[in-house]
Every structure is written in C-alpha cells, then in structure tokens.
C-alpha cells in the first residue's frame, strides 16, 4: 500500500498531541508501519502547531511536505488556511470553525481574515467544517475538541468503528472515558 499522510494542525494548547497519539494507536493496531512527528517546546506555547502522521507498508520520512497530505485535520480556521498548501490534490480537509486570534491580531498589527471557510472551498478543496467546540461542550468538556475531530476523521476512513473506540479506550484516562466516547460519537455521526 502506498503511504498515506495525515496532518493535524492547530494552536498550542488545543490538545493536538492526544489526537496524534490516538491515531498512532489505531494505525499500529491495523498492522501498518507508522511514523508520527510532533513538535515540543517553545512553539507549543500558543503558537501554530503541526503533527504529521504517516502510515503504509513502509514509511520513510516522518514529515509531510506541500501537496502531500491525504487528510488535514485543523483545530482552528486560520490554521486550516495556513496549512492548506500541504493538502494533496483530492485530499480531504476537516476544519473546526473555532477562531483563536493570534497575537498580531490581538495587538492590532494584523487582521483575522474574513470568510476563511469559503475561501478554502473556492479552491475546490474537499472541506468539512464543524463547530467541534460546541459538540465538545455538549459531550461534557471544551477540552474534548480533539476527540470530536478524530470522530469526524474516523467517519471518512475505511477503518472500522470498533478499532477507533478501542484506541480511545487505550489512550484517554479512565475517568474521562465516558465523556470522550460521547465526544467521539458526536464527531463520527456528524453530517
């Protein structure tokens, strides 16, 4: 099988690392060769963060470059636009409509662009936008945005529902399991 590439992008502190761990667990359970590349340290502090997940028969490079991602899972609108050039032709983009102002916008040195979702749609990219924050709150915690989004991604792959649920069980702490399973389902069943 040819190597598949998934990018998870967002803002430091949004919980993107848990999603990549979860994806890693699912793909390893399926018997693929897997590589996951994360960024730690300074850029985690509210900066633009990106995680690369690749799987297939044999994966070499741990990173994803422009035009290579089969899926981009974006935790924030502006980040979706920033990383759009990494999407492969025919790739799928899943975007949380949450908007987090970067510091240049907060201090008035730049503007948060309007109509981000529409502008991405106009490029012909296959985009699913979702208010994952509201669904996470519905599941019981604003912190569950990551699991809601993984639910959406799961619904677009050919990996079985149960494999995903097992990975959620193996990845999240027991006391938050119920909440996260609910968050996963809200994402998985999102139309």
């Amino acid at each position: 099988m040819e190597t598949k590439s998934i990018m998870i992008v967002g803002v430091g502190g949004q919980g993107t690392l848990l999603s990549s761990r979860l994806l890693g667990a699912v793909l390893t359970a399926k018997g693929y060769d897997v590589k996951v590349s994360e960024v730690h340290g300074m850029s985690q502090r509210g900066g633009s963060v990106v995680t690369y997940v690749k799987y297939g028969d044999e994966v070499y490079s741990p990173i994803i470059e422009k035009g290579e991602a089969d899926y981009i899972l974006s935790f924030e609108q502006l980040e979706a636009a920033r990383w759009l050039p990494f999407l492969k032709k025919g790739g799928k983009l899943i975007v949380n409509t949450q908007q987090i102002d970067p510091m240049p916008v907060v201090i008035g040195a730049a503007e948060y662009p309007q109509g981000v979702i529409e502008a991405i749609g106009a490029t012909g990219a296959d985009i699913t936008s979702i208010d994952a924050l509201s669904l996470a709150v519905e599941a019981g915690s604003s912190k569950a945005v990551n699991v809601v989004l993984i639910g959406v991604l799961a619904s677009k792959t050919d990996i079985a529902y149960d494999t995903w649920v097992d990975a959620v069980k193996a990845t999240v702490p027991a006391k938050f399991l119920e909440l996260n399973l609910k968050a996963f389902d809200l994402g998985y069943n999102y139309k």
Binding site: V11, G12, G13, M42, S43, Q44, R45, G46, G47, S48, E65, K66, G67, E68, L78, E79, A81, R82, L84, P85, F86, L87, K89, P102, M103, P104, V105, A109, A110, E111, Y112, P113, V116, A119, I120, A122, T123, G124, A125
Partner: peptide, 19 residues
C-alpha cells in the same frame, strides 16, 4: 516539484505566546 493549492487570504503569523 509538487503542486500546492492555496487561498489568496493574507494569513497573519501565529508566534508562540506566554499562556
């Protein structure tokens, strides 16, 4: 070289910040 798509939006940077 690989082809890449993009919007014509002006995208402000997102430097790391104090929490």
């Amino acid at each position: 070289e690989t082809e890449a798509i993009s919007t014509d939006l002006e995208i402000p940077g997102r430097p790391p910040v104090l929490c």
